[in-house]
Amino acid sequence: MHTAPHPTARRQRGITLVESTTVLAVAAVVVGIAVPSFDQMRQRQHLEGIALQFETDVHHARSVAVARQQTVRISFASDAAASCYVLHTGAASACHCGANGAPVCGAGAEPLRTVRLDAAREARLTANVASMVFDPVRGTVTPTGTVTVATANGRALKHTVNIMGRVRSCSPDGAVPGYRAC
């Protein structure tokens, strides 16, 4: 036997204002927790990208020196606003970064690549040498040096370039996951 629904009982359709407000509040908390970790992940990936680009440029400079049978240099510069490096031919003082980030070269030097990092927006690159020279005959690098790429949040990666042009990377205090501490 089938009974009819009670005439005063209604079926509820949709969601109530209280339910939707509760869902929005929970979503806001989840987003509030996730946003800082997304920013940290973005900064870490940016740091790793800059560091890998430098490592690639070291290998490129060595390859170009050997292929062209010509001395190639990486020259470093840094000030309060930005830091940069220029891969170039010629003497150590033959190329530097201009104020707009473009290479400024003289005395027959040829710029091969320039990387400029805005200290406020991106990262800072510092080196313990003014330039590194890639020998076209032996493929060696002199002087050897350490280049540090650091972001505003304090994370950093150090690259040590040895005499053979190999780059060894590490993270000071192990602050960057995936890199050994140095």
Score class of each variant (00 low, 15 high):
Arg62Ser: 10
Gln40Asp: 14
Arg68Gln: 01
Ala51Cys: 05
Gln43Leu: 13
His59Tyr: 07
Val64Pro: 01
Leu52Pro: 01
Ile50Arg: 06
Met41Val: 12
Gly49Met: 03
Ala61Phe: 05
Glu48Asp: 09
Arg42Ala: 15
Ala51Met: 05
Val58Ala: 13
Ala67His: 10
Gln43Cys: 09
Gln69Lys: 04
Ala65Leu: 05
Glu55Gln: 12
Arg44Ile: 07
Glu48Ala: 06
Glu55Phe: 01
Arg42Cys: 15
Thr56Asn: 11
His46Asp: 15
Gln53Gly: 14
Gly49Asn: 10
His46Glu: 11
Ala61Ser: 12
His46Leu: 09
Arg44Cys: 10
Ile50Thr: 02
Arg68Val: 00
Arg62Ile: 05
Gln69Phe: 06
Gln69Ile: 08
Ala67Ser: 14
Ala61Leu: 00
Thr56Tyr: 05
His60Met: 12
Glu55Ser: 11
Arg62Asp: 13
His59Trp: 09
Gln53Pro: 03
Met41Cys: 15
Phe54Tyr: 07
Asp57Asn: 02
Glu48Lys: 07
Gln45Pro: 04
Phe54Trp: 05
His46Ala: 11
Ala51Ile: 03
His60Pro: 05
Gln69Arg: 07
Gly49Ile: 03
Ala67Thr: 03
Arg44Gln: 10
Met41Tyr: 10
Ala65Phe: 01
Val66Met: 15
Val64Gln: 00
Thr56Ala: 14
Leu52Met: 08
Val58Asn: 15
Gln69Glu: 14
Arg44Tyr: 10
Gln43Ser: 12
Arg62Lys: 15
Arg42Glu: 15
Ile50Leu: 06
Gln53Tyr: 06
Glu55Tyr: 02
Gln45Trp: 04
